[in-house]
Design a protein around this nucleic acid. Structure first.
Lengths: 171, 171
DNA sequence: TATTGTTATACTCTATAACTATA
DNA sequence: TATAGTTATAGAGTATAACAATA
């Protein structure tokens, strides 16, 4: 149900360190740049951006919101009505066992139903309820606000290019 | 000590869904675009990129490597020798209690030492050992390879702009 | 035999609260 | 009083392994 915002925060990203020693050499003239793994790191920049954007997301959603993963799951079921748990697991990139808990959560909130299929008694058809649709409408407004917030310092063209570049490194 | 690569993977990012219904309307002509929260989402693109880059990082580091957070901590101590745990907590964005475990790990691996300070018996001066420096050198090579891998599909100029844009949305 | 869902268990990371020692 | 470090405890998210029911 409610996921505390604090436990969701991923803050293993340090503020940029002033590189006391990263540019200098030691007494023997050896370069010390290997000390600072975060300096000029694209991977670290991505992680830092992800942490900061999550902080903004949580600040907008509030402490009792669905977790991002469960939001994604709800959205997937909505756009793929009748999907089963194994397929959902595949799409979420987690195990079937993990999806059981995700669906348990969404079902306990009455956002999703496990519907029996006449021809296949081994799997469920997952469907979003009316309450689930209402929640998605609500989340849609909030995530739109979130999108505007994180893109508030860049232009439309920059936003487009940023997404394009992110897609390239994610491939 | 060794962090299993599997448990590090953050995969709450779904593969892009074909929007079965996100562009269409329902029978009453209502738009259904609110169903797909991931469509054209910058925040989701950032998260997806972060998950994919972490997968590449783990594939290069292997299953027994330091976790990214502990790598960052080690690097910070190296660039700020004598830092104490509270300061390190601040820089990592986690609590003092959390840092205890981070330093415990690094100390058990002999990468870091808690050194007593004569004038202040309340805090430690954290320093990186010779073995810690060796590990940082090794990690530096591996993370360099990682950086090349994640940027392999974009130009130097694009990499520069990507980092610039990421910094802007992280502010 | 293979697939689907489930349960049991465990691990990482992080948090809060309460505590000790020291400043 | 305030600060630094620690311990105990808890919770979210994920994994693996073993299992029953079904295909």
């Amino acid at each position: 149900m409610s996921t505390s915002s604090s436990s969701l925060r991923q803050k293993d990203v340090a503020a940029n360190t002033e590189p006391d020693a990263s540019k200098a050499g030691d007494a023997q003239g050896h370069p010390l740049s290997f000390l600072d793994l975060q300096n000029d790191s694209l991977g670290y920049a991505v992680k830092r951006a992800q942490v900061r954007t999550y902080e903004m997301l949580f600040s907008i959603l509030g402490p009792d919101a669905l977790s991002p993963g469960r939001m994604t799951a709800l959205s997937i079921v909505a756009t793929k009505p009748g999907i089963n748990q194994s397929e959902l697991a595949e799409m979420l990139g987690i195990t079937r066992a993990g999806v059981v808990k995700v669906v348990d959560t969404l079902e306990s909130l009455r956002f999703v139903e496990r519907r029996k299929i006449p021809d296949n008694r081994r799997s469920y058809a997952l469907v979003v309820t009316k309450a689930g649709l209402d929640e998605l409408r609500r989340l849609s407004v909030l995530t739109q606000r979130y999108e505007e917030k994180i893109a508030s310092r860049i232009s439309k063209a920059e936003r487009r290019q940023l997404m394009s570049l992110l897609d390239k490194i994610a491939t």
